[in-house]
């Protein structure tokens, strides 16, 4: 199925979880469809068709 990861379309297997997209939680945060998902819930968060996932980290700026 197709999801949207950081503004780009991406194919993932049926039954994939947020954890499958994000092997490491260190310094990284994720939002699913506009809501933050704590790292502790990534493994239990199954992705659905057309989900929008944002993955961010600290970057130089501001």
């Amino acid at each position: 199925m197709r999801i949207n990861l950081n503004g780009h379309s991406r194919f993932v297997e049926e039954g994939a979880t947020l954890q499958d997209l994000l092997p490491s939680a260190r310094g990284v945060a994720a939002a699913l469809n506009g809501a933050v998902v704590p790292a502790g819930s990534w493994e239990s968060t199954r992705l659905s068709e057309n989900d929008a996932v944002e993955v961010v980290t600290a970057h130089q700026g501001g």
Partner: peptide
């Protein structure tokens, strides 16, 4: 020290964060 928050595809440890 201020940092911005931006999209990343790199899920390894963040270079700037590690440094700071």
């Amino acid at each position: 020290v201020t940092v911005s928050v931006r999209r990343t595809c790199d899920t390894g440890s963040g270079g700037l964060l590690d440094t700071l």
